[in-house]
């Protein structure tokens, strides 16, 4: 519980920093996901990852569906399916919030590809699986909690 609380606090201060950076014009919110810098994959913690991706406070959206098990027995293989019914979806990023490096993968679509991606990810702990969708220069997000009984990162 303490760890969760710490994370929430960290997240809050991090989000504040991002908002300030946006206000100062340092980060352009309308970033194309495909251009996600490689460093975002090495960023530790949610706040740093979102900052590295250049995403500022995406809006919650009900048009994003995350299909993942409620309880994953093996954290090394967690099937995750993200469907975005937002018109003009151009990118989907998948994050596991409590992984050492939360950003797992990101995908960008073109030439008729639908806003759908299905893959399998590793999860260290029970946490939210978050999808960040880019559509028409805006970002949207949705999350689903997955309980993990055996972690899949590290040994």
């Amino acid at each position: 519980m303490n760890a969760l609380r710490r994370n929430v606090l960290k997240g809050a201060t991090g989000a504040g920093a991002v908002a300030v950076a946006v206000a100062a014009g340092l980060i352009t919110p309308a970033r194309v996901l495909a251009a996600t810098p490689r460093s975002a994959f090495d960023a530790k913690g949610m706040a740093d990852t979102m900052k590295a991706m250049g995403l500022a406070a995406p809006a919650d959206s009900k048009d994003i569906t995350i299909k993942a098990p409620d309880i994953a027995e093996n954290g090394a293989v967690v099937p995750v399916e993200v469907t975005s019914s937002i018109a003009g979806t151009s990118g989907i990023a998948i994050l596991a919030e409590k992984n050492a490096s939360p950003l797992v993968a990101d995908f960008s679509f073109q030439g008729g590809a639908q806003g759908f991606i299905s893959t399998r990810i590793k999860m260290a702990n029970t946490s939210l699986v978050r999808a960040v969708v880019t559509a028409g220069g805006k970002t949207y997000t949705a999350a689903k909690e997955v309980k993990v009984t055996i972690g899949g990162c590290g040994g």
């Binding site: 994959f41 939360p102 993968a105 893959t119 990810i121 990162c153």
Partner: peptide, 9 residues
Amino acid sequence: EGNMAGGVS
């Protein structure tokens, strides 16, 4: 086009 890291199974 996709980017991945060690977090993918």
